[in-house]
Computed example of a mutant assay.
Amino acid sequence: MKKRLLLYGGGAALLLLFSFTLSLSIGSSMIPITEVWSVLLGKGDEVSTAIVINVRLPRIILAILVGSALAVAGAGFQGVLRNPLADPYILGVSSGASFGAAFVILFGLQSALFGMYSIPIVAFLTGVLTLLLVIKIAMTSGQMKKETLILSGVVVQAFLGSFISLMVSMSGKAINEIVFWMMGSLTMRGWEYPKIMAPYLFIGIVILLSQGRALNLFTLGERQALHLGVNVERTKMVVLVTSTLLTASAVSVSGVIGFVGLVVPHLIRMVVGPDYRLIIPLSVFGGSIYVLWADTIARMALMPKEIPLGVVTSLLGAPFFAYLLKKGKKGVKL
């Protein structure tokens, strides 16, 4: 297992490094790759340094963090729910975060709360509170059945979605800001946003990595996992809460970005197999690369206009996921 992790992880790290360098080079002002590395090593000219360090680098770092968080969260949800169609938004986290963000934007509470951090903080808190509500609804005699949990998520998501639609209809001049946030974007994100998100990502990845063996045993069924020494309810709670925190942290800084947590773990599972001790760490690289290239396309495709990032990830992810489903019908194990 360790040899496979080193092999696949090394290849993924090289691909991420290549994507990172190329994305820094691409933009309205093209910068040669050699100059990019000169800037990163502190030897670039003043103009290139300003563009790379102050404009592109924080956005690219944030894209890497958001992609990692959503992909790892997707792997966690798919593992604990034993459902390959599970994604980071299945328990209503996106609706909860969107409700909080729309509320702040609609009533102009940015200055009254935390300034530029108001939307990320409120979106994060409402996303987490949504999970707690879903778990509360799903709990029966101290246990959570996956079917009840998923249905609870659907109900809460629909309920909050109706409030979001109501706020959009009431928003007037703020409608563009609300809708653009809900479509996902990394526009105008400075260094403050990666700093907000990085601690959650690091802690979340460490926790989910520690649950890799338990998630492997979950594939046998909860009863079998229990007989093999897994504390089933505790594991479910740890993975669900951690995956939700990762999702909420990503949504709070970028808005809703779909298909990352659905497609990336699927693709990795097709390559390396069903071992979550491999899927979780490789999802870090896979999600980073996916969102990094999607964001690069978003800012370059219709330049000088920018496509919302969530639109690009959906345009790329939906056809690919349809392909996966078609292959699955032919007997390929997803």
Score class of each variant (00 low, 15 high):
Gly261Asp: 06
Leu228Ile: 12
Leu6Thr: 07
Phe259Ile: 12
Phe202Val: 15
Leu109Phe: 12
Leu24Phe: 10
Ile26Asp: 00
Pro304Gln: 15
Gly331Ser: 09
Val239Ala: 10
Leu226Ile: 02
Arg299Thr: 11
Ile105Thr: 00
Gly96Cys: 11
Leu70Asn: 02
Lys236Cys: 08
Gln143Asn: 14
Met188Asn: 15
Val36Gly: 05
Ser152Phe: 04
Ala322Asn: 03
Leu292Lys: 04
Gly92Ala: 07
Phe180Cys: 06
Ile297Trp: 01
Ser95Gly: 15
Pro304Ile: 14
Ile307Thr: 11
Ala158Glu: 06
Val264Glu: 01
Ile178Gln: 05
Tyr89Lys: 06
Leu292His: 05
Val264Thr: 02
Leu316Ser: 03
Lys2Ala: 11
Ser28Phe: 04
Val154His: 03
Ser94Glu: 07
Lys173Cys: 00
Leu70Pro: 03
Glu222Asp: 15
Gln110Ser: 15
Leu262Arg: 10
Asp295Gln: 09
Pro32His: 07
Tyr323Lys: 05
Tyr117Asp: 01
Arg59Val: 12
Ala12Pro: 00
Val206Leu: 15
Arg234Val: 12
Leu131Ile: 07
Ala12Thr: 09
Tyr276Asn: 13
Phe20Gln: 03
Gly115Gln: 06
Gly10Glu: 11
Val230Tyr: 03
Ser94Ala: 15
Leu209Arg: 07
Gly42Asn: 03
Phe114Ser: 06
Leu40Cys: 08
Ile119Cys: 09
Leu81Ala: 04
Val47Ala: 11
Val154Ala: 13
Leu240Trp: 00
Leu282Pro: 02
Ala69Thr: 08
Gly92Arg: 03
Val93Cys: 09
Tyr200Pro: 01
Leu125Asn: 01
Gln143Lys: 15
Glu192Arg: 01
Ile268Trp: 09
Asn54Lys: 14
Val168Trp: 06
Leu113Ile: 10
Tyr276Leu: 10
Val80Pro: 01
Ala138Asn: 07
Ser98Lys: 04
Ile90Pro: 03
Gly273Met: 13
Asn231Ile: 05
Gly74Ile: 13
Thr244Arg: 03
Leu267Arg: 00
Arg59Asn: 01
Ala101Asn: 08
Ala198Met: 09
Phe285His: 02
Met167Ser: 06
Gly100Ile: 14
Leu14Cys: 14
Gly10Ala: 13
Gly331Asn: 09
Ser165Cys: 10
Ile268Thr: 05
Leu57Lys: 05
Pro308Ser: 07
Gly11Cys: 14
Ile307Tyr: 08
Ala138Phe: 13
Arg277Ala: 09
Val238Pro: 03
Pro308Phe: 05
Lys3Phe: 11
Phe218Gln: 01
Ala73Ile: 11
Ile203Asp: 03
Val72Cys: 11
Ser95Ala: 15
Ser249Tyr: 05
Gly79Thr: 06
Val251Phe: 04
Ala13Asn: 07
Met270Pro: 00
Val93His: 04
Ser249Val: 07
Ile61Ala: 08
Gly229Ile: 12
Leu240Asn: 00
Ser94Met: 08
Lys333Asn: 13
Pro265Ala: 07
Phe218Ser: 03
Gly27Ala: 07
Gln157Lys: 13
Leu208Asn: 02
Asn231Thr: 11
Ala73Tyr: 09
Ile289Met: 09
Val156Cys: 05
Ser152Tyr: 02
Leu5Asn: 05
Arg59Ser: 04
Gly115Ala: 13
Asn176Ser: 13
Phe159Asn: 02
Lys326Glu: 04
Met188Gln: 14
Arg189Ile: 04
Ile137Ala: 04
Val206Glu: 03
Gly258Phe: 12
Gly261Met: 10
Ser314Lys: 02
